[in-house]
């Protein structure tokens, strides 16, 4: 197994895609720090992982604060003595109730950049010195296909995810000479709490969607835009992350891989 005896941190690991990543890495042998603010959901992921036979620990983490991600990294080292993988997954679609607004407000722009961009920067800055000293480390950032091209609508989210790809490249360059790989995964259409919010937003902003449930709006989007004709899952993203975080991807760095059934081809 790729991650036998290794330790991974997954930010935003309590729910949705982050949960899928945490479970996938655990299944492949990793101990996992679930770094999140949602304690109840995080604890249920921890329980699930431990039932599978590896160690797991909930670490209350606000990725927008450097002191908080510093604490997250320290916790991993205290608990498991080493840190091999950081998955910067925590993300938001906007400020609270963003899905009730037609256009992003300044608060939405701030929130998406605070979490989706600075969250990656903070997480990375909290582990890079340790990884450089050790000459080994894998960082995988969760961007989005929304970051691959500008689209009308929630421009703040797309822009923050484009920045996430750019930040991945910047750190890939910086950390490459130290044996550290930094890559990104761009998930496509995945039925998560975030997508539910997006569907609710589309319901309220587009009359065509008025009679549809959020799940139906999602399914229509899948049918219209995914060449493979099916939605993607948190497990799909988990598997791509597991590949990029493994030594099988030792010569891959600075790349962003779309897991999107072919919606966008890069």
């Amino acid at each position: 197994m790729d991650f036998e005896g290794k330790t991974a941190i997954v930010t935003g690991g309590a729910r949705g895609i982050g949960r899928g990543i945490a479970l996938e890495l655990a299944q492949r042998g990793s101990n996992v720090i679930v770094a999140d603010l949602d304690e109840e959901s995080a604890r249920s992921v921890v329980t699930e992982i431990m039932a599978g036979g590896t160690q797991s620990y909930y670490c209350e983490t606000d990725v927008t604060q450097q002191w908080s991600t510093d604490g997250m990294a320290e916790t991993a080292l205290e608990k498991y003595g080493q840190l091999d993988v950081l998955v910067n997954n925590a993300g938001v679609g906007g400020a609270p109730d963003f899905n009730s607004r037609k256009v992003p407000t300044v608060e939405d722009w701030q929130a998406t950049f605070d979490v989706n961009v600075y969250g990656i920067v903070n997480g990375t800055q909290s582990v890079e010195n340790y990884m450089i000293e050790r000459g080994y480390g894998k960082i995988v950032n969760i961007a989005s296909i929304a970051g691959r091209a500008g689209r009308p609508g929630f421009a703040s989210y797309g822009a923050s995810k484009a920045a996430a790809i750019n930040v991945s490249q910047a750190w890939a360059f910086k950390l490459a000479p130290h044996g550290i790989n930094v890559n990104a995964v761009c998930p496509g259409l995945i039925w998560t709490p975030l997508w539910q919010s997006i569907a609710e937003w589309r319901k309220s902003t587009d009359d065509q969607n008025a009679g549809l449930s959020p799940r139906q709006i999602f399914q229509h989007t899948v049918a219209e835009s995914v060449p493979l004709g099916r939605e993607q899952t948190p497990e799909d993203v988990g598997k791509a992350v597991a590949f990029l975080a493994s030594d099988r991807a030792r010569s891959i760095t600075g790349q962003a891989l779309n897991v999107d059934g072919g919606i966008r081809m890069n």
């Binding site: 791509a240 760095t253 600075g254 779309n258 897991v259 999107d260 890069n266």
Partner: peptide, 12 residues
């Protein structure tokens, strides 16, 4: 669920 992608294996 990955298709149409081109992945560089090139050390960056």
């Amino acid at each position: 669920n990955i298709t149409g992608q081109t992945l560089n294996v090139d050390g960056g």
